[in-house]
Structures are given as C-alpha cells and as structure tokens.
C-alpha cells in the first residue's frame, strides 16, 4: 500500500516541517518514505509545498502530480492544487486563510481554523502543527501518540517550545471538521 500527500502554503508557514514530521513518523513505523520539497525562488516567500509518499515497498516515483491528500494552508495553494487531487481523495484547508472551497464533489473536504487556534494558544508559529493535528485526524494516517513522540524527539533541544506544540497538535486534532 502506498499513500501520498501534499502540504502547501506560503514560505514561512512551516509547510516543509509538516511533511517532515509525517516522514519521521513513517520512518519510526518502519515504513518506506520519500519527502520532496519545492525549492528555489519559490522558497523565498512564495508558494511552498512538499510531497510525502509512504509505503511498505521501496518508493517508486517520489514525484506526485496528483496527490490523494492535500493540505492547503493558504488560498493561492488551494486554488493551485485543489484541482489536482485524485477523485476519492481528501482536502484539508486552513479556513483561517482559505475562505473558498474546492467545488469538488468527488472528494472529501475538511477544514481547520489553524491561525485562530494558534493565536489562541499564544503564537501563530504553531499554525502548521495545529493543521497537522487536524490532518492526522481526518487522514487517520498516524496515531496522536506517535506524532507526540516525534515532536518530543524533534524539540528535545527546545523544551520551551514542546508544550505549546503538543497543545497545538491536540487542539488541531479535536477541532477538525468535515464540510
């Protein structure tokens, strides 16, 4: 079984980190995984995205043009990528910045008010982690415990940030709604 997903937004939203946490979780589960970023001028404040492919067998093409799962953290990425999602797939949008819907009837759409929740927690910097919490809820990809483990491991040198990130992932998981 192979599963793929695309995290999209603008540079600075922590898009690449969302994918990395999922990739680290996959590694911990003993899965094969490939994480591919967009790079170059796009990194400098423009649209940023990364794709993650997870499987039981070695990953073939790591380039995914039509993902099964899309996380859209801002409106331009929603507009750019939502039409690429495979029929039967899933879109999670950050409703704080994406007021529009995909107008697709052949897939499931979810939303999370990631910026508001992050602000409520005290810093907009954890917006991506809030959305990641929502993503594990609506995709069912990994358990909350596993993602907690990864956050513990990644933030071991920055304990001050750990608590708020753990709160963010939980708030995101519980606030994710289907539309």
């Amino acid at each position: 079984m192979q599963m793929d997903m695309m995290f999209t937004g603008f540079g600075g939203q922590g898009i690449l980190m969302m994918g990395k946490i999922i990739a680290l979780a996959a590694l911990k589960e003993g899965k094969e995984v490939a994480w591919v970023p967009s790079y170059g001028p796009e990194m400098r404040g423009g649209t940023a995205y990364c794709t993650v492919v997870i499987g039981d067998e070695p990953i073939g093409s790591p380039i995914i043009q039509n993902p099964m799962n899309l996380v859209a953290m801002n409106q331009p990425s929603m507009e750019k990528f939502s039409q690429l999602v495979k029929p039967g797939g899933m879109i999670l949008k950050n409703s704080s910045l994406v007021p529009v819907s995909s107008h697709r009837t052949d897939l499931t759409e979810y939303e999370i008010a990631a910026n508001e929740i992050a602000n409520d927690l005290g810093t907009v910097k954890v917006t991506n982690v809030v959305a990641l919490g929502a993503f594990i809820e609506c995709s069912g990809i990994f358990s909350l415990d596993l993602i907690r483990d990864i956050l513990n491991q990644e933030l071991s040198k920055k304990p001050a940030l750990l608590d708020i990130n753990l709160q963010a992932i939980e708030r995101g998981k519980s606030a994710c709604v289907s539309i």
Partner: peptide, 9 residues
C-alpha cells in the same frame, strides 16, 4: 536536483 533535495531514510 531531486536526489539532493529529497529526504529519505
């Protein structure tokens, strides 16, 4: 470029 930019185990 892909080999350089990609993350894998």
């Amino acid at each position: 470029g892909l080999i350089g930019q990609m993350m894998e185990p």
